[in-house]
Design a binder for these strands. Structure first.
Lengths: 202, 202
DNA sequence: GCATTTCTGTATCGATCGATGCGGAACGAG
DNA sequence: CTCGTTCCGCATCGATCGATACAGAAATGC
């Protein structure tokens, strides 16, 4: 019984799956799940529908993988922000990351986790719920970070970490909505600075 | 020359246009512009596609009229909030109105002005821009109210009314996003209360 | 009564939606 | 080479998209 060491048999795929997923992610980010047609996706990916289905399953699975890529790419600032030494530093890093990511001139405006599928028809319900869970996960990670700050004495002991996390995520998603509508990054960053001038808010 | 007193000639329409528009507004609110199909709209309105086109023009015009109805209906709290005697009172009334409207158990969760068309495909660009302007108008009205508060001495003279308005609208839209995802009204209201405990934030 | 105007129900339009079938092309294994 | 496997290009699937054509029904004006 010998472990197979050789590569996979058959014709190798003729495109870079990572690059194709990156381009699909950008289309979903800009146009949302329902607004991104298969033709627009495969056109941007540079492959045929057949290749897309073979490599990614279907449109919904493609979106799920694109969201993972978004989380580890444009949205990776969150993980970095949670590593900041103070709760205030973490909150400021989160908001600065949101402003930067959602108003970057080179990329789509807004946040894929917000505008990807905020309200949909029936066929998009799965994706809509997925994004709701994605947003809730961000809030939870922030809450855990604030809980740790309370335990460390960085935040007053009477602080409610859940309330604080909800506050920061509310600002973050509000920034994302306005960035999607074309509000500039400078103005949003100035607003975020002002919001964090009183800390903690409770 | 006599003024025409009689009713319009021809067969009168057999449905209540106001009620039909109300129901269309609810469908757009819940599913967004792209997620609301003509079949879903006319089904909820209780009329045929022919009647809908005759009465409202097309899908985009129906959405525009539904948005007007939303502005004068579920979103009317904004006008009332601007009439509050103080800037803080206005901000608190706006946020309380948003929380109440976006988490009402009887109606769709979230805000039609946010989730109606935050990111769309090409055919929805007009509606997307319409909503961006709608949101910006809300921010402008709030800015004018804060400017008046500065003039009245209700807010410190060095206050930036635009920044303050951006802060409140950011909270409002962030609340709407989380309400769309199922976050409860009590938690959002508690967060809004905490956010306004420091006022003005700048 | 009749003519005119408007609304409604049915049936359907072309376009696009997401998703597949199929045959040939391109690889590794033997 | 031949064989087995996988991928790709093309054509196309049924369903649904938003939007209309058409004929009959229901009102007013004469």
């Amino acid at each position: 019984m010998q472990t197979r060491q050789s590569g996979p048999v058959g014709r190798p795929r003729g495109f870079d799956a990572d690059q194709a997923l990156e381009r699909a992610m950008l289309v979903f980010w800009e146009h949302g799940y329902e607004g991104a047609s298969l033709a627009a996706l495969t056109g941007a990916m540079g492959i045929s529908t057949t290749s897309m289905y073979a490599a990614f399953g279907n449109k919904e699975e493609l979106f799920r993988k694109a969201l993972e890529r978004y989380t580890e790419g444009p949205s990776a600032y969150l993980t970095g922000a949670l590593g900041q030494p103070t709760a205030l530093g973490a909150a400021a890093a989160v908001l600065a990351g949101v402003v930067r990511t959602t108003t970057r001139p080179a990329g789509p405006h807004g946040c894929m986790g917000v505008q990807g599928a905020l309200a949909t028809g029936d066929p998009g319900r799965g994706v809509r719920d997925l994004l709701a869970a994605w947003r809730d996960d961000g809030s939870s990670r922030l809450r855990e970070r604030f809980q740790q700050a309370v335990d460390d004495g960085d935040l007053p002991p009477e602080t409610d970490p859940g309330l604080l996390a909800r506050y920061v995520t509310t600002l973050a998603f509000g920034i994302a909505v306005q960035a999607a509508g074309g509000v500039g990054g400078d103005e949003l960053q100035a607003m975020a600075d002002a919001a964090l001038r009183n800390w903690p808010p409770a």
